[in-house]
Amino acid sequence: MSERGQATIELVVCAGLAAIVAVGIQAVLVAWAAQGRAQGIADQAAVVVAEGRPVPADLRRDATIQVRAHTLVVTVPVRLAGGLAHTSAVARAALP
């Protein structure tokens, strides 16, 4: 194989690896951000629920908020790799 061909193969492999690494990093960052958002919503919603007030609509916009027994569960959907995969970030808070 010529030196030029070898370089081409190396370039393609490196580009592929870089793309995979980029997607992986993006997935980690998106999941991290979603977890933080879920926790933030849980923090606010738990206080509002404990005070006996309805949860504001803006907290419900991107999350599902459920109260099970004395636990508030917040679920934020996460789209990974441009929507190719889906998961969710979940945060809980113990209510009085």
Binding site: D43, V47, A50, A93, P96
Partner: peptide
């Protein structure tokens, strides 16, 4: 920072529990 948020949530709910 994350711990600060959790701690404040715990403090808020503890206060609300007693106040309720």
């Amino acid at each position: 920072a994350a711990g600060g948020g959790h701690a404040q949530r715990a403090a808020d709910l503890a206060a609300v529990a007693a106040a309720t």
